[in-house]
Design a protein around this nucleic acid. Sequence first.
DNA 1: GTGACTGCAAATAATTTGCATTACA
DNA 2: TGTAATGCAAATTATTTGCAGTCAC
Lengths: 142, 142
Amino acid sequence: MLDLDSVTQQLSERQFKITRQRRAVLRAIAGSNSRMSPAEVYAQARRNCRDLGLATVYRTLDILVEIGAIRRMHLDDGCEGFAPASAEHGHHLICSECHATIEFEDCNMTAMLKRLESRTGFTIEKHWLELVGRCPECQGKR
Amino acid sequence: MLDLDSVTQQLSERQFKITRQRRAVLRAIAGSNSRMSPAEVYAQARRNCRDLGLATVYRTLDILVEIGAIRRMHLDDGCEGFAPASAEHGHHLICSECHATIEFEDCNMTAMLKRLESRTGFTIEKHWLELVGRCPECQGKR
DNA sequence: GTGACTGCAAATAATTTGCATTACA
DNA sequence: TGTAATGCAAATTATTTGCAGTCAC
């Protein structure tokens, strides 16, 4: 879930203006419980802001990633999905059927990372983890 | 690393023809120690096969993903990187500076996945993990 | 021999940019 | 009011497709 007030505040602090268009994009993302493509965000946000342009959606998504309000995700068919990222260090669990998306934090990988660092000589800076499965509602389907 | 002979054999078994172009693409990927974009594969493979077309590279990469010889990766700047995937269940560790790529298998997540399944009600089908860091050679740089 | 494979060019899709205009703060 | 942000259209980039010719088996 995305907390509109706190994101809005963050935008202000960073000197970004709170425009009607940005508000519409935020509401679109906050109102969805699944990861969205730029086109989906556009379609949804347009309902609240009829003169929104697709380019603005791209520009806004970039800003939201920059301030950490949403996170870029990998999708099976390619890339460029976005989902809210409320947690400082969060990952996503996505339903392969309906794309419902849940954020979780306890990935518990420090021990494994340490082991890998000493084995490879790499210094690991970050990790990227996504889980794909079936949400409770979709488990019967297909 | 990519074992040319075994991939070639897999291609044959699946009734794919071993063409000069496919060989060049395979050699390009096998000869690199880092993840490559389609354009990089094309540039490299072209050195061994001057009349190679970019479309063929795309078609070949699709086939290689299909037979599991390489794996699609997420890159920070977007998507569509490819790296060899020799292990049945492997993940990648990528250097953020030079893009050197190492595959590893022991991700050790079963306990965490179980916990998450019971907490969320999801059935987790697969996970996607990538680590980004600095390889030994690049640790001084920047 | 023949069907899968190819290069090329054209088509499509996705994203970014330039610029005159608008609207936050 | 001044400047960042916008919509639109054009430009760019990435990927896919159609098709006549080619080549692996």
